[in-house]
Computed example of a mutant assay.
Amino acid sequence: MDKRKFGNTSLTIAPVIFGGNVFGWTLDEQASFSILDEFADAGFNAIDTANNYSYWVPGNQGGESETIIGNWLKQKNNRSEIVLMTKVGGGFGGDSKLNTTAAYIIQQAEESLKRLQTDYIDVYQTHYDDEVTPVEETLRAYEELIKAGKVRYIGASNFSPKRLVDSLEASKEHQLPQYSSLQPEYNLYSREKFEKEYRDIALKYNLAVIPYYSLASGFLSGKYQTEDDFNQSARSGGIKEQYWNDRGRKIVEQLQEVADNKRVSVSAVALAWLLAQPTIAAPIASATKAAHIKSFVEASRLRFNSEEIKNLNEASNFYIYE
């Protein structure tokens, strides 16, 4: 499978990153191992997780996803073949708060390394910016971890545009490690915030963009085509409320049309649209069954003609709904 250069790093990744939020949540360890085997066997090599996944599951404390990934890496003995990404700074539910202080980052890095059963993290990302800690303090913590060989590169996720630019400029001014990647919410439905506020920053600083919610919580997977499709589960109600409107219906219809013409899954079309956008290194997507991995493969191979891109862009155009 063709690999893509990851921003300004020496890393190369396959065109879809596995989203590890499902490990310890919708998948137990055995099922997680099976789906990771499918993912790696298909030629993919990048996994994204976080220190607090899957704290929201009753009985969990956070760190379960990293633990499962670490056990899989040990079993397969394939650490050198995997680009491993994890995150720090997010809360663990309840009264826990966002935290990007140096002491916290250093301490959490050690815990993540133990759970992942590895000596180093390829891309260590600020999950959420606490917007209080000076950006230089956060970056100096990463500098310490990089010098110790425990982290190779760093990335940013949920930042305000100003704090992101402040961080990037501080890196240049103080000769500190610079964020190499940006993980925003971005998909065919949720385009406006990224395209208006972050895309130019990503272009200017050569950030590798790795979007989360690439399939809009499953709305862009093809499973929701009619009103009746939202009666499948309690979770579907929230998806319907957020996405099922005139614009959402147009997007789904256009995705289905392209999928039918290309003879691929709707998910593959939605992921391939992201891959066709400037600055996008690879979308993050989760999988719970082999069919999902098949859609990842389809997306990596899919190429659009100008008419298909035009139609997808027009169906998802947010300007006309402002």
Rank of each mutant, 00 (worst) to 15 (best):
E66C: 00
Y212F: 12
V252A: 13
P177Q: 09
E136R: 02
K114Y: 12
S300I: 01
I201R: 04
E29H: 03
A14H: 00
T279P: 03
Q225V: 14
I146R: 00
D37P: 04
N52C: 13
S190T: 14
G62I: 04
E110H: 14
Q125D: 05
Y198H: 14
F159A: 05
R191P: 11
Q242P: 08
G70F: 03
Q107K: 15
K223M: 09
K87G: 11
I13S: 09
S180N: 13
I201E: 12
L113I: 06
L164V: 06
N71Q: 15
K150P: 06
S10K: 10
L312F: 00
F318T: 12
E173T: 11
E137Q: 13
H292M: 02
Y142M: 03
E253W: 07
Y243I: 07
Q107S: 15
D95E: 10
I210M: 15
N206H: 13
Y124C: 06
K310W: 03
E257C: 01
E81I: 06
E192I: 12
K294E: 12
E227L: 01
A270D: 07
G248V: 01
T288F: 06
N99R: 11
S181M: 11
D48S: 11
Y53R: 06
N8P: 02
T138A: 04
I121W: 07
S167Y: 00
S286A: 10
W244I: 05
P15I: 09
D95R: 12
N206V: 04
T279Q: 03
D228L: 11
T67G: 10
S306C: 08
K196E: 15
S160L: 04
G43D: 09
E322F: 14
Q256I: 10
P161T: 08
I121K: 04
I106K: 13
Y124Q: 03
P184E: 00
F23C: 00
L113D: 02
Q175E: 08
H292R: 08
A50F: 05
W244Y: 14
I280V: 15
Y104C: 06
S10A: 11
T67M: 11
S190F: 10
A42G: 01
